[in-house]
Amino acid sequence: METSRDDVGIAIRSAFLTKSTKQKFSLFALIILSIALLFTETIETKPLNFFRAFVKDAIYRGALVVSAPSKSINNFSGFIKEHLSLYDDYGKLKKENSELKNQISGKDFLELENNQLRRLIDEQISSSSNLLSARVMLDKQSPYLNSFIINIGSNKKIKNGMAVLDSKNFIGRIVDVNYFSSRVLLVSDLNSKIPIITEPSAHHAILSGHGKNKPTLEYLPENHNIKNGDKVYTSGREGIFSPGIPIGKVRIEDNVVKVLLFSDLSQITFVNINLENINKIE
């Protein structure tokens, strides 16, 4: 049997343009709307930004409510696992405690020495009041993007590009700010490129995320002398992040310089946002 071109045309018209039973919109109209939506993403105007922020805030709240049952189940299973591993944990903690007790005396001496030396050079110790704490609201790790949502936004003067820390370690930066929420792009994400400096080798490079795999150092000088265990800090070269925020330490695997992060990105509940360079970010 031969299929004429008219039959295909009729089938396409019927599938795309006609509103079938109980359908309020035609597929074609919605496809055009989606494309228009994609184009408006590139337009930055105040009303559009406000609308986008409103929609995103509303969806985040909805997602928070919907994910509450699965979160409770996860918490419960975590609770059970913790109870089951209680005996092992006790043994480990006991061992760790004795090791720490041994280290304390050495640390006390170093602290004393450090204070004396600081007084000697009259250094002004910077305060940590430029950190703002936030809670992780949604942690929906997309297979494509490694990011999470925190519960503060432009209501607390958060801006795009600000450094996000777990305790004192760098874990990512703000990439999307709404009124009540913001998105943090983690250093492990494919889209994350952070200027860093290594220590003690003092090489500048770019820390590049690779999704599930460990981030790597790119654009290193050809004859670099980086070794396993070298520390990686933000270089502050881009002028947004403060220099010297610890990120991780180097591990060289198959001639690829990888970075083991100081923070476990899957275990983050609270974060600090560095407001130090707030005036530079506009």
């Binding site: 109980k22 309020k24 919605l30 496809i31 709307l33 939506l37 929609v55 997602a63 990011s147 990439v175």
Partner: peptide, 30 residues
């Protein structure tokens, strides 16, 4: 059973996925 899943709802669900995953609005919807 197309009457059980309207195109409008599919579009909305795509937009929600975009927001939740942090992708540009319209990618999943499209």
């Amino acid at each position: 059973q197309p009457r059980m899943l309207g195109y409008g709802f599919i579009f909305m669900s795509g937009v929600i996925s975009d927001v939740v995953f942090g992708l540009p609005l319209g990618v999943n919807a499209l």
